[in-house]
Amino acid sequence: MFHKSSMDVHLKDGHILCAYCQRPSGEATYSELDLNNVLGARKGKFAWSAENFTEDAADVILKWDGPNHEPMLHAQLEDEGGMHNEDTVNLAACIKNEDGHLRYMDCF
């Protein structure tokens, strides 16, 4: 749930998650996490603990969705047949703010 202790959360270059993350001391530090290092695509769906989702992605967008206003990554992902399917992944499910730094946590 990194987004609850972070400000100015945005996506850079379609795959780098950026934010100012609050530290326990109260100060906020700028942090980046390259989602290509922790998120891939399999059969037209996002897959955690994989890599390089952008190789199979188009129209990548970060939106704040749902009743809890969570950071959701949306994209058109190519499946094995070359078709593009829209998929969404909740970034808050596997990314945390650890002492002012965005970190991937093995969540599945």
Rank of each mutant, 00 (worst) to 15 (best):
G81N: 08
V89A: 01
A75S: 10
E98P: 04
P67F: 00
C94S: 11
N85S: 03
G82P: 13
L91Y: 05
N97D: 11
D87F: 07
I61F: 02
A92D: 12
P71W: 04
A93I: 12
E80Y: 08
D87W: 08
C94D: 09
L62A: 03
D79C: 01
E98L: 02
N90P: 02
G82D: 09
P71E: 03
E70A: 04
N68C: 01
N68Y: 02
D79A: 06
H84Q: 13
E98Y: 05
T88Q: 10
E80T: 12
H69I: 12
L62T: 08
K63Q: 05
E86L: 04
M72W: 11
M72R: 09
M72C: 09
L62K: 02
A92G: 15
E78W: 00
A93P: 04
P71A: 03
D65L: 07
D79K: 08
D79S: 09
P71H: 05
T88N: 04
T88M: 09
G66T: 15
G82A: 07
A75C: 07
M83Y: 00
K63H: 04
C94P: 14
E98D: 10
N97K: 05
H69W: 00
L91W: 01
M83Q: 05
E86V: 13
L91P: 00
E78I: 12
L62E: 05
N85H: 14
I95R: 14
D87G: 06
G82F: 00
N97R: 04
V89C: 05
M72T: 13
L77H: 13
P71T: 14
D87A: 15
M83W: 00
N90V: 06
Q76L: 07
I61H: 13
M83H: 04
D87K: 13
E98H: 13
W64N: 07
G81M: 10
T88H: 02
D65P: 03
V89D: 00
I95V: 15
Q76M: 11
L73R: 09
T88F: 01
P71M: 00
T88K: 09
L77P: 10
E80S: 14
L62S: 04
E86A: 04
V89Y: 08
W64F: 03
L73N: 06
E98M: 01
H74W: 12
H69V: 10
D65G: 00
K96L: 02
A92K: 11
V89M: 02
L73G: 00
A93K: 10
L73D: 05
A92N: 10
L91I: 14
L73Y: 01
H84I: 11
N85G: 07
L77V: 13
N85I: 12
N97L: 05
V89L: 01
A92M: 07
G66Y: 09
N97Q: 08
H74Y: 11
G81Q: 13
